[in-house]
Computed example of a mutant assay.
Amino acid sequence: MTVPREKPQGDAEVGFHTSGHTGKPTLWLRTHDQLRTEAQMIGDVIIGTVDRVVTFAPAEHLFGRLFGDVLPRLRGIPVQDLHTDPTQAPDLIKTARTLLVCLPSTWAVLQRMIPRLRELPGTVALHGTGPVTPAAARVVSQLRGSGFRAVELFGSTESGGIAYREMSTDPAQARPWRLLPDVRLVTDGPASELQTLHVRSPRLARPANAPTPPPSLRLPDLIRPVDARHFDHVGRSTGLVKVNGRRCDIDAVAADASRVLGTEVACLAMRDPLRGEHYELYYDDLAGTLTDETVWHRLPGALAGRPVPRTLHAVPGIPRTATGKLKLDQLHAATAQRSAVRA
């Protein structure tokens, strides 16, 4: 456990890498004032008073930097940093109000600690890196009525925090997202119609190849505005998934893997009970020249540090429509048929 001290500011900006819309690493720069403003605002609006922080998120990512480093420094409170071993159970102090900075996989750890969490005078679990997992829903449900609160934070490396809501155990009953005080929606049509998420904020990051931050930012998310300060999130407009907080463009993975493997590849996003989201990779092995072992061996050259797929599937061709869209029913049928033959 450490008590953070103010670090020398050094450079005027701090860099954070993201996969961006193309899947290639992109550097986005934020000022120290932006980091402090965001940590302080979310601390005041969402988190409230806490005595200590337990973080499972690495500080090289914006989420982990804000709440595992900047906020504790502003408040002079101790931090237990578990990002190098995110399956480790945190130290819980019965008298301490605690902020838990969570990855999707964190909830499997917290599920084993429900009796101890119930004893704390107040706990805030901040979830900012993907969909609510079944383990998260179980924790929230079993701790209902105690001093435990779970809050989802919506945002990105480029935008910083955008919106928040109390975590719901039933996705069908989830509340709309509420914008943070300094964020504004840019609506591109009638307020209730489906549109891409387009925001203005003084905390937008600066692309490393640009002299200033953009005046507004359009994200690869589809929303339906409820009113000027609330929206429902419908889904992503691209092939981006977050695997335990790491953003991955699976369309880019498919293109790079096709080149490396010398055959057509498709990737499908999947819900994952531990990591929130994941993806599976399908490769055309109609010629019978590839094996899963060969594909696993060659994949690192295509992934370039991106998360590996959860599962591989060899199929006799990647079925597509005339416009190039995947025929999911035929893809799943081909997978099932191959599995049956192997069995």
Rank of each mutant, 00 (worst) to 15 (best):
E277W: 07
R271S: 14
L274K: 06
G305N: 04
G276E: 07
C267M: 11
C267Q: 10
L274E: 08
A252L: 08
T289F: 07
L290W: 08
L268S: 06
L303H: 09
D251R: 12
G276S: 09
R271L: 14
L312S: 00
E280G: 03
V265P: 07
T294W: 01
S258V: 06
V295Q: 00
Y283E: 00
T291Y: 01
L312W: 09
D272N: 12
R259N: 08
A255I: 15
L274I: 11
P273T: 03
P307V: 04
H313P: 01
H297W: 00
R271Q: 15
P307C: 02
A269R: 05
H297V: 02
V260M: 04
L312T: 03
G305K: 06
E277A: 00
T263E: 00
D285C: 15
L303I: 11
P300M: 13
G301M: 03
R306S: 09
A254G: 11
E280L: 05
G301E: 08
P273N: 09
D251E: 15
R306P: 08
L290R: 08
L299M: 02
L268Q: 13
D285V: 12
I250K: 10
A252S: 15
T263F: 02
L299R: 00
D284H: 10
A302F: 07
A304T: 09
T263Y: 02
E280R: 13
T289D: 15
R275S: 13
T289G: 10
D251I: 09
Y279G: 01
G276Y: 04
G288T: 11
A255W: 13
A257F: 02
D285Q: 14
A304P: 11
H278Q: 11
Y283K: 02
D285K: 10
L290K: 05
E264L: 10
Y283S: 04
R275I: 00
R310M: 12
R298Q: 07
P309G: 14
A255R: 15
D272T: 02
D256W: 15
D251Y: 07
L299I: 01
A266T: 08
